[in-house]
Amino acid sequence: MAISFESAFAGHDKFLKFRSDRSAVLANNIANADTPNYKARDISFSSAMSKAQNDALKMRSTNTKHFERATKSIKEEESLFYRVASQPSLDGNTVDLQREQAEFAQNSLKFDTSFMFLDRKISSMKKALNGGR
């Protein structure tokens, strides 16, 4: 019986990718907290999830005579959005440093949770392959 990593990982591998991308966006916001006219950005989980579902549902052609797909998948940039400032600053910067740090910490916890789940899944698979040793 073949092992399906996709079902074994239960999507946590994709969650790690999303959390890593979001971490980079939030870190960029924090780094530009004092940059005039910088607009804070974030990644929407729902749009990233719909992109992943669209990618999974893509038609695959097995013959050169097959038609091309009519609709295109969502680009990665479209899952990024500009965050609305709760307290706009005079220099046009929309980064709220405390909010960004809180979002970064929450994202980090969720990343660690998915990573621990994957680590335990992989170690249990190794254990099964080694015969319980």
Score class of each variant (00 low, 15 high):
Ser44Cys: 03
Ser123Cys: 01
Lys126Val: 10
Lys17Pro: 00
Lys75Asp: 09
Asp42Tyr: 06
Ser20Gly: 09
Arg133Leu: 12
Asn63Thr: 09
Lys14Leu: 09
Thr71Ala: 14
Ala24Tyr: 07
Met59Phe: 13
Glu78Phe: 08
Asp42Leu: 03
Glu68Asp: 10
Gln101Asn: 08
Asp112Glu: 13
Ala27Gln: 10
Glu76Val: 10
Ser79Gln: 14
Phe81Trp: 08
Met59Pro: 03
Ile74Phe: 06
Tyr82Asp: 07
Ser23His: 15
Ala40Asn: 01
Lys72His: 10
Asp13Gly: 14
Ser47Pro: 02
Asn54Asp: 09
Glu77Gly: 00
His12Arg: 15
Phe15Asp: 07
Thr94Tyr: 08
His66Met: 12
Ser73Phe: 04
Tyr38Arg: 05
Ala24Thr: 11
Thr62Ser: 12
Ala52Ile: 04
Phe67Cys: 01
Asp55Cys: 05
Thr35Asn: 02
Phe117Trp: 07
Arg133Thr: 11
Ser20Lys: 11
Gln98Cys: 00
Gln101Cys: 07
Gln53Trp: 07
Ser61Met: 14
Phe5His: 00
Asn93Thr: 06
Ala31Ser: 11
Ala48Phe: 14
Lys75Glu: 14
Phe5Arg: 02
Val95His: 07
Ala40Pro: 00
Leu57Gln: 13
Asn37Arg: 15
Asp55Ser: 09
Ala52Val: 05
Glu100Asp: 06
Arg120Glu: 02
Glu77Lys: 10
Ser50Val: 13
Leu118Phe: 09
Met116Gln: 14
Ile74Pro: 01
Phe18Glu: 02
Leu90Trp: 02
Ala40Met: 03
Asp119Thr: 12
Leu118Thr: 04
Arg83Phe: 02
Ala102Thr: 11
Asp55Trp: 06
Leu90Val: 11
Ala24Pro: 00
Asn93Pro: 04
Thr71Trp: 07
Thr64Lys: 12
Asn130Thr: 14
Thr64Glu: 12
Ile122Gln: 05
Leu26Gln: 01
Ser50Met: 13
Ile30His: 04
Met1Trp: 10
Ser46Glu: 15
Leu26Asn: 00
Arg69His: 08
Ala40Phe: 03
Arg60Val: 15
Gly131His: 04
Ala102Tyr: 08
Thr94Lys: 03
Ile30Glu: 02
Ser108Val: 04
Leu129Ala: 14
Phe115Ala: 13
Glu6Gly: 06
Ser89Asp: 06
Val25Lys: 04
Asn107Leu: 08
Leu129Asn: 04
Asp112Arg: 10
Asn63Ser: 14
Asn37Val: 04
Phe18Lys: 01
Glu103Gly: 01
Ser4Arg: 05
Lys121Gln: 09
Leu26Arg: 01
Ala8Pro: 00
Phe115Lys: 12
Ser124Glu: 05
